[in-house]
């Protein structure tokens, strides 16, 4: 139960998964309450974590509270296992809990995520932990915390539709593409964290337990397995997910969420799976997108490496001219221009 910060000791020993047992019990109580009231934001006494808030301290605390020694942990950031954020959090739990980690969605028992839900369908044996910057879906129109609490308590969600109304009035369609509000189990309206609305349908009737942790705002909420999750909309402007004009350029997958990748400074670009594990697995199975196969070098164009990119090398290693653009949206980015989206 100790985190002995005695400066002179080179090896610092922590309690399993860093947090002390009392704190974990407190967080577990909040999680149990959250599961009992799907979509309801449960306040909890968030602890200081050895990383800045923007790094998903809420998700880290939830993960620490539910992690067991036999768990296999996967950490993704915008779909990738190899970003600085994902690597740091994975390393944190490797060091403090000594748990096995993986990049394969199918092997993981616990997945902590920032801004995506894996493409591979989750199972009953898995828990998905979301990092949440702003838990309150009504915040946009009603900054007063006392009032938003009242609105949730009384199930007064007209305001949520005012936001969608404003979207349509301004853009001709519901332009909210991230953090798209959902109604959970026919009762609470919830912010699913800044995942693309593309992922919203995956939350519905999901076999895995979904937990949401907001560190700075000290809130935990949950979607129990097999819960109905409905995206809000209007009768004459029904909810629609983003669709992409082309399949993944590396693995030819369709019906998945794609990131835009700039290939060169002459406007060359391609669209590839945002879920790197999914993309790599497909390529390993032999699926090939239009940019994946080696092309005769006479053209001279800069092409990405045709073979599956090993983790950790995707950003620089094999394709030096790759620049990821759709990644790295700031935490809390509610909506924004979305290059790869086809307005449907």
């Amino acid at each position: 139960m100790t985190s002995q910060h005695t400066g002179e000791m080179p090896a610092i020993s922590y309690n399993f998964a860093y947090l002390d047992e009392q704190t974990k019990r407190m967080i577990r109580r909040a999680i149990l309450k959250a599961i009992a009231i799907p979509g309801y934001q449960v306040p909890f006494a968030a602890r200081e974590m050895p990383m800045p808030y923007g790094w998903g301290t809420g998700g880290v605390q939830v993960t620490a509270a539910v992690l067991g020694p036999d768990d296999v942990l996967k950490v993704i950031d915008q779909g990738a296992d190899d970003t600085t954020n994902a690597v740091a959090i994975r390393g944190f739990f490797e060091k403090t809990a000594g748990v096995a980690t993986t990049t394969a969605t199918t092997e993981a028992t616990l997945i902590q995520t920032r801004h995506r839900i894996p493409e591979t369908k989750l199972s009953e044996n898995q828990i998905l932990v979301y990092q949440v910057p702003i838990p309150e879906p009504l915040r946009f129109l009603e900054p007063r915390e006392t009032e938003t609490r009242q609105l949730h308590a009384l199930e007064e969600y007209g305001l949520m539709h005012v936001k969608l109304y404003e979207d349509i009035a301004r853009h001709g369609h519901i332009a909210t593409t991230y953090a798209y509000p959902v109604e959970v189990a026919g009762r609470y309206v919830m912010d699913p964290s800044p995942i693309p609305k593309f992922d919203n349908p995956k939350m519905d009737d999901c076999p895995a337990l979904q937990l949401f942790g907001a560190g700075r705002e000290k809130r935990i909420y949950a979607i129990p397995p097999y819960t109905t999750v409905r995206s809000l909309d209007f009768e004459d402007h029904p909810f629609k997910v983003q669709r992409f004009a082309k399949p993944c350029a590396l693995c030819a997958a369709t019906g998945v969420y794609l990131d835009e990748v700039i290939l060169d400074d002459r406007g060359g670009r391609m669209f590839v799976c945002s879920d790197t594990d999914y993309c790599n697995a497909r390529q390993a199975e032999g699926h090939r997108g239009e940019m994946a196969a080696p092309v005769s070098s006479s053209g001279g164009a800069v092409l990405p490496h045709p073979t599956p990119l090993p983790h950790g090398e995707r950003e620089q290693g094999d394709a030096p001219s790759l620049t990821l653009t759709a990644r790295g949206a700031p935490e809390g980015a509610g909506e924004g221009p979305f290059g790869a989206e086809i307005a449907s």
Partner: peptide, 27 residues
């Protein structure tokens, strides 16, 4: 009023609060 919400949204808020869910009708 909600100063950051359009005139239409300001008028429509009560309608949405009592369950109107058709954008065209609200407008």
């Amino acid at each position: 009023l909600r100063m950051a919400v359009s005139a239409g949204g300001n008028v429509g808020e009560r309608l949405m609060a009592v369950g109107w869910r058709h954008y065209g009708n609200i407008r």
